[in-house]
Amino acid sequence: MGVPGSPQPIPSGERVKARVLEAEDMSRALRRIAHEILEHNKGIADVILIGIHTRGVPLAERLGSEIEEIEGQRPKVGAIDVSFYRDDIGIRRPKEISPTELPFDVSGKTVVLVDDVLFTGRTIRAAIDALVDFGRPDTIQLAVLMDRGHREIPIRADYVGKNIPTSANEQVRVHLAEIDGSDEVVILEGQA
């Protein structure tokens, strides 16, 4: 599966407030989440991982590989783009759309949605709406690398890499080797 999306350079200088995850931290967090997914679902029969574009997609692929290493079997991994389901169409400039690839039936399955940052919850709301257009999963779970708080709708994650307190105007940037060339998570100061 292709990994679209262009790298987002981290601005140098005063805008970086903190580096909250290094490459090793990230891979440990993902390995733990993989174990939690297995434990919670008692294996991977009927488990499907679906990454939310852009950075949820490589994360879902990585979780798939971690699970494969532990279980000897790779779960199905898909990708979903939520652009057409967002609640801010016409309010914000649309982001570039990436292909949705769900070459399997999700009905009756346990779907784990994967994203990089959980913030307002609106992307996840859109992802659930998009997903149910493809079928009726038995359960939908949510795995995120970072939970930064500030929810605007009642959504929570089942698996979290790291919780970080932030103020609403700060930005959490997740960088992944597949897209950005390296693995790290930084908090950027909000723009005045």
Partner: peptide, 18 residues
Amino acid sequence: MLGDTAVSDEDSEEDIDG
């Protein structure tokens, strides 16, 4: 065309993920 009518100047690349 219609999804881009009431555009804020906010850079869409900023962290709108949630």
